[in-house]
Nucleic acid binder design. Structure first.
Length: 420
RNA sequence: GCGGGAGUAGCUCAGCUGGUUAGAGCGCCAGGUUGUGGCCCUGGAGGCCGUGGGUUCAAGUCCCAUUUCUCGCCCCA
């Protein structure tokens, strides 16, 4: 085999694509219900857009981006993440000027140079939403509720919602200092990456899985107790709304997100059916990002959801989307002379909005019947020499095995009738 | 980037300790009616045994490398 899809990428074959369409369709439906409109952005952006928003010291930026130089010697990067391009478009087109609150959704490929494994690819696909212009905790709750309803609509069960607050530029630095203070005596005993994190991103020490590190951070004061008044109130309000909406959650003070732009609310929906990659939906609030990109102060909140992971969960839970649009009618022709009439009838059926198929490989009657059966045709139209001479076609109901001779000019009409 | 497992027909897999022309089930194609599907029967097509080296009289089988998939770490959707 000379060529195959690049490592970590995949072809979505016709037998799989109905599942994708189903998931994406449900997502579009829900977005419409919640008032989110689609915003499509380019597949690649200036590299700087991602490094500055996601954060230089994050894994995504430091080792996972697909970056290349274009012929104008500009550094470009394939979409490494869903939010930054949306924010860029929001600021570039001054959408904040159109209305106070803007709500968008996207369905798109995301590219990260990672070691592939179950639920993790170099090109994966996300559906996601972003809501701009409101700092109301009810907006956080709406975003989470949309995710929750998306899962429910797909019939996906058993997902846990974990939620936390990562604070704001007021209180987060203070907590980071307190964290450093607490860890400092054990610094030499932490794992290598945590020693780097100590300086660059101390919050990440909280969710380190290395057994040694866990030990030292287990007694560390919770960020929830270090939030400023505003952030604390915000978190409480979000949780209260979730209670009101009947959305159960686990408050997890150790939940940390790997992108720098998050403020206040951070959340994930996790599933036990995913193995090591347990997060299917991840998101949070990013009140400072629009300003950072040169827009007016605009609070915002959103999430991203991995389509491949959603499909994995659905498969594990035995959820089969309703699929299969089989031709309703299969046209069988017997012999050269009947072919022209058959092709014409096939076209007429299709023009009348009736799904129709025929055989293009010159098979026998029996084989054509088998093909019709395999395609689950409801009716078969048989055109042989005899019929042709009499100006008739034979219409066979595949369910009842009834056969009727019908004048050619009435065939489409009769079939349409029978199908309705 | 690090560690474990795997790669044989379109699909799911079998090939024991190295030994003739590499097998099964499903699927596909054809026949069993002269112009009629599902079930059944018969036959057929289809494999550089992931790729490249090595050991050997002899390699699908043993060794090395490589690549892809897979599981875990890391991180994330």
């Amino acid at each position: 085999m000379r060529y195959s899809a690049p490592r970590g990428t995949q072809d979505i074959l016709p037998r799989e694509s109905p599942r994708w369409q189903y998931v994406e369709g449900k997502f579009r439906d829900i977005c419409r219900l919640f008032g989110y409109n689609e915003l499509r952005t380019p597949t690649f952006e200036e590299t700087d857009l991602f490094t500055r928003s996601v954060g230089e010291h994050t894994d995504i930026v430091s080792k996972e981006m697909y970056t290349f130089q274009d012929r104008g010697e500009r550094s470009m990067t394939l979409r490494a993440e869903g939010t930054a391009p949306i924010v860029r478009a929001y600021v570039q087109h001054k959408l904040h000027g159109e209305q106070p609150v803007n709500k968008f959704y996207y369905i798109t490929g995301v590219f990260r140079y990672e070691r592939p494994q179950a639920g993790r690819y170099r090109e994966h696909h996300q559906v996601g939403i972003e809501a701009f212009g409101s700092q109301d905790p009810a907006m956080d709750a709406e975003v989470i509720a949309l995710g929750s309803q998306f899962l429910a609509t797909l019939g996906v069960g058993g997902c846990e919602l974990k939620i936390n607050s990562v604070g704001c530029p007021e209180c987060a630095p203070q907590y980071k200092d307190a964290l450093r203070q607490d860890v400092k005596p054990y610094l030499n005993e932490l794992c290598e990456t945590c020693q780097v994190r100590y300086d660059t991103n101390p919050l990440r020490m909280l969710d380190c899985k290395a057994p040694g590190c866990k030990e030292f951070t287990v007694n560390i004061p919770s960020i929830v107790d270090h939030l400023c008044q505003d952030c604390g109130d915000h978190l409480k309000a979000v949780l209260r709304y979730l209670d009101d909406l009947g959305i159960s959650y686990i408050l997890d003070p150790r939940l940390v997100r790997g992108l720098d732009y998050y403020t206040k609310t951070a959340f994930e929906f996790q599933s036990a059916d995913l193995g090591a990659q347990s997060t299917v939906i991840g998101g949070g609030r990013y009140d400072g990002l629009v300003t950072q990109m040169g827009g007016p102060p605009t609070p915002a909140v959103g999430f991203g959801c991995g389509i491949e992971r959603m499909l994995l969960i659905m498969e594990a839970q035995g959820i089969e989307p309703p699929i299969n649009v089989h031709p309703s009618v299969f046209v069988i022709t017997l012999g050269e002379a009947t072919r022209e009439l058959g092709i014409k009838l096939l076209a007429d059926l299709r023009k009348a909005g009736i799904a129709a198929e025929t055989d293009y490989s010159g098979k026998s009657m029996k084989s054509q019947m088998k093909a019709a059966d395999r395609e689950q045709a409801k009716f078969v139209v048989i055109i042989g020499e005899d019929e042709l001479n009499q100006g008739l076609v034979k219409v066979r109901n595949m369910g009842t095995k009834e056969e009727n001779d019908v004048p050619i000019c009435e065939a489409v009409e009769k079939i349409a009738e029978a199908l309705s």
